[in-house]
Design a protein around this nucleic acid. Structure first.
Lengths: 214, 214
DNA sequence: TAAAGTCTTTCTGTATACACGCGGATCCAG
DNA sequence: CTGGATCCGCGTGTATACAGAAAGACTTTA
């Protein structure tokens, strides 16, 4: 019962940026901190390493310090996979998938919603899209890749213009999927994610000094 | 020293089909079999599960029994990623990358080579292609996906016509990469993998009864 | 004062112990 | 003979013990 819970907790803490950049994650320390033995901690750490969220250090582990190059790599993979997922969704979506996408899209674009809610809805919208592709393999890969991207997101926040663009691009993808037009869905996905990549790169450039201290 | 070695050994044994289909992999049994304690076995099993090679059973683990649906899913992901990798390789390949690809291609197409050597060279050729894309993320994902496909390959063997077609398709990809033509490289990759998928599906249909016994 | 070597401390890797839980087998009843 | 309940054994989950290795500090020497 403890190992899965521990994994989830540790994962949340990593993704929420609760570990100072560059700090060492030690099995012994974490075991005491989470009130379990080293065994579940060990398993959680290896899983998180395989998820690409942590990396081994000389003594323990550390949160993976991403480079701009990593962002480019991850996006190249994500664009390829999510483009395919969008095309597949256009071909294989059920009416229920479509209703889900519409609902989340409406939630995200509700002018009365606060930014946090809108952001969560946008994130869930992507998940719903992957589900609509009816390919569990691709869905799992995309879940992993976007989790890796979240590491770069600490302290980032969208501007209203970003949100408006996101809304329009999601809208274009949604219409293509509704119309069962795979090529258009893929093109819309590529456009959306290409812009998303630029935003993340810009945010990264803004927050990262030219020459890291280490 | 033991855990990585154990993981490699176990992985090889799984991929080589040394565990009877549907048989249970038990920590205790494997620990005795490999002459180590349960701890390294545990870690190897969780990693292999995350690799998509094993799945949990009620008591232990079992080699993932793949369905035709799984093959289609994996190929959909692989085609998307390897198409992107081919395009990226066309853009970013170094002369060393190109030399590697040529060398392996020559080895694979050497009429004096035995089938096993040619097969190994073809497999290495794909690895070299992924490297030439200079995207470690995509390379890692493709490595995992093709490992999953190997589970379906037991007792499969290419016909001479397959090998000839593979040679021609690799050749087309190689020329596109050499000529730095991303679109052509992607198209050639799609064609190659699309045919590869059909071959695997046909082999699967041939070896799998319509209604499984379980 | 700086460099090199040693020593201590600490963390990991592996093994093992112990308890819980699930599954199968056996036995009883209908 | 079949359905169900109970009991036993095996395997996993978690904790812990122990040894080996590596990093850092301290000492010694040039």
């Amino acid at each position: 019962m403890s190992t899965d819970v521990t994994y989830e907790r540790l994962r949340e803490d990593v993704l929420a940026g609760r570990f100072p950049a560059g700090s060492r994650l030690l099995e012994t320390t974490l075991a005491a901190e989470y009130g379990v033995s080293r065994t579940p901690i060990r398993e959680a750490l290896t899983r998180l390493t395989q998820d690409g969220l942590l990396e081994r250090a000389s003594r323990g582990y550390r949160v993976r310090a991403g480079t701009a190059q990593d962002i480019l790599e991850i996006y190249e993979a994500r664009i390829a996979l999510e483009g395919q997922a969008s095309a597949s969704a256009a071909e294989r979506r059920t009416d229920l998938d479509l209703a889900r996408l519409h609902h989340l899209h409406d939630t995200a674009t509700d002018p009365a919603a606060d930014p946090a809610t809108a952001r969560a809805a946008n994130s869930q919208w992507h998940h719903a899209l992957w589900q609509a592709a009816h390919n569990g393999t691709i869905e799992a890969l995309l879940t992993r890749l976007t989790a890796q991207l979240r590491i770069y997101d600490h302290g980032r926040h969208e501007t209203p213009e970003d949100l408006a663009l996101t809304r329009d691009e999601h809208s274009r993808m949604l219409h293509a999927i509704e119309a069962r037009d795979p090529a258009e869905a893929r093109a819309a996905s590529d456009q959306h994610l290409g812009r998303s990549r630029e935003i993340r790169l810009a945010a990264f450039a803004r927050t990262t000094p030219v020459e890291p201290a280490w």
